[in-house]
């Protein structure tokens, strides 16, 4: 437990000192969303139809962008091999790293999305669902993505491979996430969509840490 807490504190401190890396996905998210009304049409009715999908796709890509750096710097400076040699459960330590990633990527994206939703004329009443679905969904995205990041950390240019590996696994989260916001707009029940997002998160929470630990071992031990 001490080690898990120390890893949380260490990664949070490190990322908060390198703000650029934290801001990158948020800036990307904001830029993409800003460009859409300019490129398509400022018509609020049209935008309202495509807004849920746009917001979710842009947030997903922003989260994907930040994944490669999850284990990269630890790999480069040798702390990753020390992490693997620690007499601690590796799954718990990797879960701490993923938690930090979500806190500084997924959560800010979820909080920022409603503001960008205004820009896309997202109908009132769906803002809370948008933030909630993104908060739940990006947690699954971080967990699943970390498996791919762990598998590709040993490769010099693992970025493209990483996207190819994890994008198919992201699709269920995308479908139900965007579906929740759409349901909120049309006034349908959102509970089912959110419940499935929660179930996906529970499943990834249960399985992903072990998969991340095994992937890291494969990457480091060859």
């Amino acid at each position: 437990m001490i080690a898990v807490k120390a890893t949380l504190v260490r990664d949070l401190t490190l990322l908060l000192r390198r703000r650029g890396e934290v801001l990158n996905p948020l800036v990307f998210f904001a830029l993409v969303i800003t460009l859409f009304p300019i490129a398509i049409s400022p018509d609020p009715e049209l935008l309202a139809v495509i807004a849920p999908g746009l917001l979710w796709v842009a947030a997903l890509l922003a989260a994907l962008l930040s994944l490669d750096s999850l284990f990269r710097s630890d790999y480069d400076d040798g702390s990753l091999e020390q992490l693997l040699l620690a007499p601690q459960p590796l799954a718990a330590l990797s879960l701490a790293k993923v938690a930090v990633h979500w806190l500084l990527t997924g959560l800010p994206l979820a909080l920022m999305a409603p503001i960008l939703g205004i820009m896309l004329a997202l109908p009132a009443g769906s803002y809370a669902v948008l933030a909630l679905s993104l908060a739940l969904g990006t947690a699954s995205l971080s967990l699943i993505g970390a498996i791919g990041a762990a598998l590709t950390v040993g490769l010099a240019r693992g970025g493209v491979l990483l996207s190819l590996l994890v994008l198919p696994l992201y699709i269920p989260v995308l479908i139900f996430g965007a579906g929740a916001v759409q349901a909120a707009i049309f006034g349908d029940g959102v509970a089912a969509h959110l419940a499935i997002l929660g179930a996906l998160l529970a499943a990834s929470l249960m399985l992903a840490p072990w998969a991340i630990a095994a992937s890291l071992r494969i990457s480091i031990n060859g």
């Binding site: 080690a3 401190t13 007499p87």
Partner: peptide, 28 residues
Amino acid sequence: YLGHAPGIKSGLSPLENLAWYQALSGES
């Protein structure tokens, strides 16, 4: 084990680096 790479985070101070290693070995 001390490898080729020292395993020291450049963004953290020596004290903070050691604090992590101390915790990693299971000590408060």
